[in-house]
């Protein structure tokens, strides 16, 4: 079980997370939703150890991750929102660097890298520099890097951005396969249809607070909405899109 309790974070005195709490059970995908600036990426960066929280507790199987952050990170796989990689390396070099820094056995690592690159349709490009990769290709390299060490907890921050249709379908299937294998998955995305299909439970974050949490069905029936998209719009106070669109178009011409 992965648990986040009362997580708070301030930037320059402005609170961006106001006591966020949630849980992810084994074999569960938690849809982590929210409009831009709601604090999703901040939460994810805190969990990945890239930011320090001001307060709150994060536990994995009952153990506070602050007690032994490296032990937690050994069990964590992370696909960040932006495909930031060392672009002077090739895909193979990058994955090998990640694998060796995670102290994975070299012989198995090579076989694993080759297999992953093949399965992710990157085999032909694997010796080209990452600087020549498209966003989708870089995203697939990050995916391979996150899966290399068979982590228990996976965080996907907008993993579909830049992926083509085939790669998106493959990623969906992959997420379901990971779920079947008992992995805990925190899945942040703006693609509501995908979230609705994949996630047993959904959490919508708004202005740094958990606005609603529950299964997609529960949320829909509670809000009497037909889709998760409508629930999202209602929760985040974005209802009259047509009027807003008109206002946007008029804004520059007054």
């Amino acid at each position: 079980m992965f648990e986040v309790r009362d997580l708070r974070k301030q930037f320059a005195g402005i609170e961006v997370l106001h006591g966020v709490s949630f849980r992810i059970a084994r074999g569960e995908i938690l849809g982590y939703l929210g409009p831009n600036g709601s604090g999703k990426s901040t939460t994810i960066k805190i969990i990945a150890g890239l930011l320090d929280p001001n307060s709150g507790r994060i536990t994995l199987d009952g153990a506070d991750i602050a007690d032994d952050p490296p032990a937690f990170r050994r069990r964590l796989g992370y696909v960040p929102e932006e495909p930031n990689l060392y672009t002077h390396l090739t895909a193979v070099e990058y994955l090998r660097l990640v694998g060796l820094m995670r102290d994975l056995p070299a012989v198995a690592l090579d076989a694993h890298i080759t297999a992953l690159l093949q399965l992710l349709d990157l085999e032909l490009a694997s010796y080209g520099p990452l600087s020549s990769f498209s966003k989708g290709m870089r995203q697939r390299v990050l995916l391979a890097a996150a899966l290399l060490h068979d982590p228990d907890l996976l965080i996907f921050d907008e993993p579909f951005s830049g992926l083509d249709v085939n790669a998106s379908l493959m990623l969906r299937a992959l997420l379901q396969a990971l779920q079947r294998r008992g992995k805990m998955i925190l899945f942040s995305s703006h693609q509501m249809d995908v979230v609705e299909t994949l996630c047993r439970r959904v959490l919508i974050l708004y202005r740094g607070r958990v606005a609603v949490e529950g299964s997609p069905q529960e949320l829909r029936s509670a809000r009497v909405s037909e889709s998760l998209e409508e629930v999202f719009a209602a929760v985040t106070e974005q209802e009259d899109y047509a009027a807003r669109a008109e206002a946007i178009l008029d804004a520059g011409h007054r």
């Binding site: 990945a48 150890g49 490296p70 990170r73 990689l85 820094m101 995670r102």
Partner: peptide
Amino acid sequence: PLDRSAGWLFRLVDDPRTRGPA
């Protein structure tokens, strides 16, 4: 720094077991 935005990788994989050898 070579690429500041890519440096997250080493924060993520920083581990006392591998820090010394690195």
